[in-house]
């Protein structure tokens, strides 16, 4: 198994997103590419990533392998790469991850026993969909966070608003149809869902500017799925379970 990225931004974004949920991550490499799927310890959020072989400068994988890494250790190595530096990873016979950063930095990192079990994806319909720039979404989360720990998303016909309510007050942000920043709002059914900013904020910050656009899909009292559109990466899906009244 050997994979070489062109540039380091995509790998940094992926590792940063994963680091918001788990301390140890198991990746699966197949001939098709590299995948990761995992939940945070309390099972409130799930990240599902698929990174196709075509996105790499060089990619070889003769047989399927799983490899586990401590995310903070891996992250430290990858941060040593400049934006344009390629990162090459392979696995040694001594069960070490070989990480070549740029032209001349060759790291070896101990792999960990992978305890990964196959996590399914939640089976849910998505009644509503909002596409907007990730920078706009990041600002909205900041606007809500000053009064609340939770974001409520509401769609009605083809309108949407984000809101938050806390002890000190509340906020409503109407999404006007701004062509530059709001790509699309659609709803098959009016939907309302409330989600924790404790999970949302870090992952949106982590993928940050690497994703131009994001798509939020949800239904009333169902998990939110955010798709980050990162040019070379097949899929970065972030699922977040709702808070519901009972």
């Amino acid at each position: 198994f050997e994979a070489k990225t062109s540039g380091s931004d995509d790998l940094k974004a992926i590792i940063s997103a994963i680091s918001t949920l788990v301390e140890e991550a198991t990746f699966v490499a197949t001939a098709e590419g590299i995948t990761f799927r995992g939940m945070d310890p309390s099972h409130v959020a799930l990240i599902d990533i698929s990174w196709p072989n075509s996105a790499f400068e060089k990619y070889e994988c003769d047989s399927d392998i799983k490899f586990g890494v401590r995310i903070d250790e891996f992250s430290k190595l990858i941060k040593r790469a400049d934006k344009k530096d390629s990162i090459e990873i392979s696995i040694s016979e001594q069960n070490m991850l070989l990480v070549t950063v740029g032209k001349n930095k060759k790291y070896k990192m101990r792999l960990i026993e992978s305890s990964a079990t196959d996590t399914p994806l939640p089976k849910i319909p998505y009644d509503s969909k909002i596409t907007l720039s990730s920078s706009r979404f990041d600002k909205i989360l900041g606007d809500v966070q000053v009064v609340s720990d939770y974001l409520t998303i509401h769609t009605s016909d083809s309108k949407a608003d984000f809101s938050g309510k806390g002890d000190s007050g509340e906020v409503v942000i109407d999404l006007e149809k701004d062509i530059d920043e709001i790509g699309e709002i659609s709803s098959k059914e009016d939907s309302i869902g409330t989600y924790s900013l404790e999970y949302l904020n870090p992952v949106v910050k982590a993928v940050g500017t690497t994703a131009g656009q994001i798509t939020c899909e949800f239904s009333s009292a169902k998990p939110l799925r955010i798709e980050f559109k990162v040019a070379n990466i097949g899929r970065i899906h972030f699922y977040l379970a709702p808070r519901v009244e009972s």
Partner: peptide, 11 residues
């Protein structure tokens, strides 16, 4: 009462 659901509630 507001409750935080888990992803597993929707498998």
């Amino acid at each position: 009462l507001i409750r935080q659901k888990t992803i597993a509630d929707f498998f």
